[in-house]
Design a protein around this nucleic acid. Structure first.
Length: 426
RNA sequence: GGGGAGAUACUCAAGCGGCCAACGAGGACAGACUGUAAAUCUGUUGACUACGUCUUCGCAGGUUCGAAUCCUGCUCUCCCCA
């Protein structure tokens, strides 16, 4: 596999420094991507740089994932309109460990010369003192050079602390360090990282008299203009505790036709022939959503597991099937499987005694279940005919009783098509 | 330091003494259509013990039968001049 060719047809190259391709054909080359420990899990937006590393490794080169124990203390101003809140050291370390574990599942760490590696820039920054840094590194980069970066320019009006202004130097130094100590010659990242990366190659040129390269991937845009990787509930995380595999799968399954071709090229390892074939099949019958399903399957299996994927599909089928069929489907499931499938779906537990007396539908949603925030909202939804109990639409006279139990234990409540709530009765 | 403008619901943005729970737009949610889509059409979008009541228009007071609208003080934001 030739990396640049591969990334080109996948639409993953935004900017590339001249000479990068030659470098890659010349020798096994190390390249790195940095990850910011701003949260205790990676989200699907981070998957783009992860895939860059993956394709790099598949094409025979050595990927280095850098977790930003040091840079995370500063805050990258790129693409941010306001000063960042600093994280505590404990938080950073906690986040870092969590992200490291996630990164490990995507790359091969035991395949000889091009085994992947994870490094933490705190390891080298902790021993550097301010004066040395200013003398040895700062001397090579001018203020006007730093000021000309978009990440800085756009913040001159709204304000930017010296701390964030320094960021590009710190990240540039990372590249220099990796160049000198690990023979790393390429830095990759999102297109918003271009400025930071170039500062690194510049440092390497001036201080180490070396040549280093850069490659960035475009920021993912969705056709409808909304932000990629966000849903009502916020970010789509890789951590199943933060985003259930069901929701994760649903996110990909709901990709629009306008986006899904791009997504499948970026986020899956399918080769060109496979993807082209899928696209043809998809276009024959868009309604069957061939691409969305293939994408959802591949990525859910790789991020979570095949088992989680199957549960997600099972849950999807049941939750979106109509009427009696869905109820029968639910009934056929074992209690433990129901727990698995509905992991991440809002849940509540009602007592048997309450149910024996009958629970009116409004209080089931608000007072008892806490699924909706006010009785008014519940009544409104009922009036709009959007509330279902066990897949059947109900009105405001509905009262839940033992009759409604599925498998003697569960009641499935829904608002609209996509909002599911599971009630367990004990 | 001097002068001016402004703060309204998730966001933008009307209203400038009663007809205001507050026009409109966007967003969000739901219904129809559909592919769990897009586009489109429709409805909803402060709370409640609900044809009525209560709490909301930066904060605290005041004038008035009655205020988001007038007055006073405070806080914050923006602009212009020095």
């Amino acid at each position: 596999m030739e990396l640049i060719k591969e990334l080109t047809w996948r639409g993953m190259i935004h900017d590339i420094m001249p000479g990068t391709e030659e470098q890659l054909t010349k020798e096994i080359t190390s390249a790195y991507v940095g990850f910011d420990p701003t949260a205790d899990s990676l989200h699907i937006g981070n998957l783009v740089p992860v895939m860059l590393l993956k394709f790099l490794q598949l094409s025979g080169h050595k990927p280095i994932a850098l977790v930003g124990g040091a840079t995370g203390m500063i805050g990258d101003p790129s693409g941010k309109s306001a000063e960042r809140q600093l994280l505590s050291l404990e938080d950073i370390n906690f986040n870092l460990e969590a992200q490291k574990k996630q990164l490990e599942q995507f790359l091969d760490f035991d395949c000889g010369d091009n085994s992947a590696e994870i490094v933490n820039n705190y390891d080298w920054f902790k021993d550097i003192n301010l004066l040395d840094f200013i003398r040895d590194t700062g001397k090579h980069i001018t203020i006007s050079y730093m000021m000309s970066k978009d990440s800085v320019k756009s913040r001159l009006e709204s304000g930017m602390s010296f701390t964030e202004f320094t960021y590009q130097l710190i990240q540039g130094f990372d590249f220099l360090y990796l160049y000198e100590n690990k023979n790393c010659k390429i830095q990759m990242g999102g297109s918003d990282q271009w400025g930071n990366i170039v500062t690194g190659t510049e440092l390497i040129r001036r201080k180490a008299r070396g040549e280093a390269f850069a490659l960035t991937a475009p920021l993912i845009k969705k056709a409808d203009g909304t932000k990629f990787g966000k849903s009502e509930g916020g970010n789509i995380w890789l951590d199943p505790k933060k985003t259930s595999p069901y929701k994760f799968y649903q996110y990909w399954l709901n990709s629009s036709d306008a986006d899904v071709e791009n997504f499948i090229k970026i986020f899956t390892l399918f080769d060109k022939e496979t993807i082209d074939a899928l696209i043809i099949k998809h276009n024959e019958d868009k309604g069957s959503r061939v691409l969305q399903k293939a994408l959802g399957k591949d990525i859910t299996c790789r991020v979570h597991s095949e088992e989680e994927y199957e549960n997600a599909v099972k849950a999807s089928e049941i939750l979106f099937k109509k009427g009696q069929e869905a109820v029968d489907g639910l009934k056929s499931l074992s209690a433990s499987l129901i727990q698995d499938i509905f992991e991440g779906v809002p849940q509540a537990t009602f007592s048997k005694a309450d149910l024996a007396n009958g629970i009116d539908i409004v209080s089931a949603f608000v007072e008892k279940g806490k699924f909706l925030s006010s009785n008014g909202e519940a009544r409104r939804e009922l009036k709009q005919n959007s509330i279902s109990v066990n897949k059947a639409k109900v009105n405001d006279t509905c009262v839940l009783t033992e009759e409604d139990l599925i498998g003697g234990k569960y009641i499935l409540l829904q608002k609209g098509k996509k909002n599911n709530y599971l009630v367990t009765v004990e």
